[in-house]
Design a protein around this nucleic acid. Sequence first.
DNA 1: ACTGAAATCTCCATTGT
DNA 2: ACAATGGAGATTTCAGT
Lengths: 168, 168
Amino acid sequence: MPKSSLKEQMPSTAFLQDEKDIAILALLQANARITVKEIAEKIHLSTSPVHDRIKRMEANGVIKQYATLVDHNKVNKGLMVICYVSLKAHSKNAGVKFINTINELNEVIECYSISGEFDFMLKVMAANMEDYYNFHVNKLSQIENIGHVQSVFVMGIIKQTHQLVYDR
Amino acid sequence: MPKSSLKEQMPSTAFLQDEKDIAILALLQANARITVKEIAEKIHLSTSPVHDRIKRMEANGVIKQYATLVDHNKVNKGLMVICYVSLKAHSKNAGVKFINTINELNEVIECYSISGEFDFMLKVMAANMEDYYNFHVNKLSQIENIGHVQSVFVMGIIKQTHQLVYDR
DNA sequence: ACTGAAATCTCCATTGT
DNA sequence: ACAATGGAGATTTCAGT
């Protein structure tokens, strides 16, 4: 069985139909407010199939969210810190409690469970160093069961995108 | 001089006017396709000032992008890897060359210049381990002047948001 | 700066191929 | 599954306060 077409390269539960879905997604990722008409013109289709395809991708969860991205520096959240955390105890209960607390902290915009010597990696946004210090001392370190914490400061943003490219 | 009002807490070059701008941003961050009418109703204003405020925040760069966020798992990009890189030489020229190359690699969706023993942190999205291995060996390691590379694998996504909250 | 209304354009459902 | 059309509703502009 030859695996040449894009469709056959997709996972068994295919959420994308063909290259047209990918083209639509690429345009939407770059601009969530692009009109159906404009997409239709760019990919040489009429509006109805484009509309149908978008609704399908919304329904099956390929499209998670239409988000507005804000310039951190212009809204007084210009300091980004990558924060590594290890827990003292590793019971399931301890992990769940940590996760619940992290989800309530607005300064933490990302949190991942990771391989390596630490248990979690956090991306924290703060106004400045004083603001981050307060977060560190009064919020993060106060969480029950916290072991080690290590902060890595972001000095420059080289690249930041959400555009997933499907190049084959 | 008392610092009580939100306006006075803002940086001297204020990009946000007042709490209404913040309320509008909060709604837009959660849903880039919300209608002006709907925003107007929620913050008890008519459509025109809401429209004007959005246009102003687009023009002054507070609003960077209206983006569509896609479910990585459903488009065959389910493996996230945090990648640390140090360069051999640290001349300005070497850094610029690295940065240019990184910007051409679609697998790299974020790249930061960081404090600590490594020079850069990358967030890489791949289909699976084989895909990541190919990226690592054939693309990342091939970049001129690359020193050490360390990969940290993301085993679970605990939290992932872009919503900046201004809680005072 | 906000209100209210008028004009333009887009969406979305229906129909037809 | 895609093209074309018309009514509903949104965006956008422009008066007035």
